[in-house]
């Protein structure tokens, strides 16, 4: 880990611990949703940003993770904490299966296959209502009970997000990460240079899916309810939006994007809740046209200049 990353991580933790004290209680839920999206999109960032696989079925994996955990809690009384692991595990396992299926497809076709998979998952969840509760959703036990349950759930989310963030940083700087980048940049050249591209493709995909499963299980046990909406196509839209305006392929991008989107959505919900998707669409178009690196691009341009100013200031 680099110095900057430690500073950012510590800052996020400190802000996250202070936030419930200074913000009205409604923001606890809002920020918890930001944690959920951050974990989910860190996963997608590993799939698309690191490994270069444009998966359009990412929203299916939090549904799989969430329902797995909720069903296990309902039928065998598994604790929600172990449910997180179970959700991540099952989503990762399915990620391996889908990863093997998409080995031979690239680009647009990969997008279609994964999208079809997500729709299948959604249809199954909606149709098998004896098991999953159909569109009405499924109740899941919350992590904690009592008056402060929501606050503890919030801290749980903060911890999980930092865990996902840490993993994505470690991956970014490791040799494993380099293999994923090589697959993203030029899969044929990577194969000819001795990199086991098939393995790394599946690895990157399943790894991201597993984080999505973790996010889904957190979602279910934080709200105490999970419904098929979690795997909807609009959710996939949010995932793309968050990562692209945050900064694709960067470690901070998903977190930055998640907080921006979730907080903006909350702020405008009072005035123009129906228009939030419209507003986000415009932001996405502008970001893609003028700022393809997202917020991270701004930071990367500004930070050396600020650093120079700071050095000049200190040397005076």
């Amino acid at each position: 880990m680099k110095k900057n990353e430690i500073i950012v991580a510590v800052t996020i933790i400190v802000l996250g611990l202070i936030a419930p004290k200074v913000l009205p209680s409604v923001w606890i839920t809002v920020l918890s949703m930001a944690f959920y999206y951050a974990i989910l999109t860190i996963g997608w960032n590993i799939i698309f940003g690191y490994t270069g696989l444009f998966s359009y079925g990412h929203a299916a994996f939090p549904a799989i993770g969430g329902y797995t955990s909720a069903l296990l809690a309902q039928h065998i009384g598994l604790s929600p904490f172990l449910g997180l692991l179970a959700g991540a595990f099952i989503a990762g396992l399915l990620g391996i299966v889908i990863g093997l299926l998409i080995l031979r497809v690239h680009g647009f076709y990969l997008c279609l296959v994964t999208w079809a998979f997500a729709e299948v998952v959604n249809v199954i969840i909606t149709a098998e209502h004896q098991i999953t509760g159909g569109t009405g959703g499924l109740l899941a036990p919350t992590f904690f009970s009592g008056p402060n349950a929501e606050l503890f759930g919030y801290f749980m989310g903060l911890g999980l997000m930092m865990f996902a963030f840490l993993i994505s940083i470690l991956l970014y700087h490791s040799r494993w990460g380099l293999n994923l980048f090589a697959v993203r940049d030029d899969i044929d050249a990577a194969e000819s240079m001795g990199i086991k591209t098939r393995f790394w493709k599946v690895f990157g995909f399943a790894f991201g899916c597993s984080l999505a499963g973790l996010a889904g299980a957190y979602f279910a046990h934080f709200l105490g309810l999970i419904d098929p909406g979690i795997g909807g196509l609009d959710q996939m839209g949010y995932v793309c939006l968050i990562v692209i305006i945050g900064g694709l392929g960067t470690v901070y991008g998903p977190i930055l994007g998640s907080f921006f989107v979730v907080i903006t959505k909350e702020l405008i919900s009072g005035y123009a809740s129906g228009y939030s998707l419209l507003i986000f669409s415009v932001i996405m178009i502008l970001a893609v046209r003028f700022l393809s690196g997202g917020f991270m691009e701004i930071i990367q341009v500004i930070s050396p200049r600020l650093n120079n100013r700071y050095l000049k200031f200190v040397n005076k």
Binding site: R175, L178, N179, F181, A182, R184, D185, D186, D188, A189, A190, M193, G194, I195, G249
Partner: peptide, 16 residues
């Protein structure tokens, strides 16, 4: 030439 474009020069060698 097909180097890994979005990786640094050093990373290009490290990964192989």
């Amino acid at each position: 030439p097909r180097p890994f474009m979005n990786m640094t020069v050093l990373q290009n060698l490290q990964v192989c």
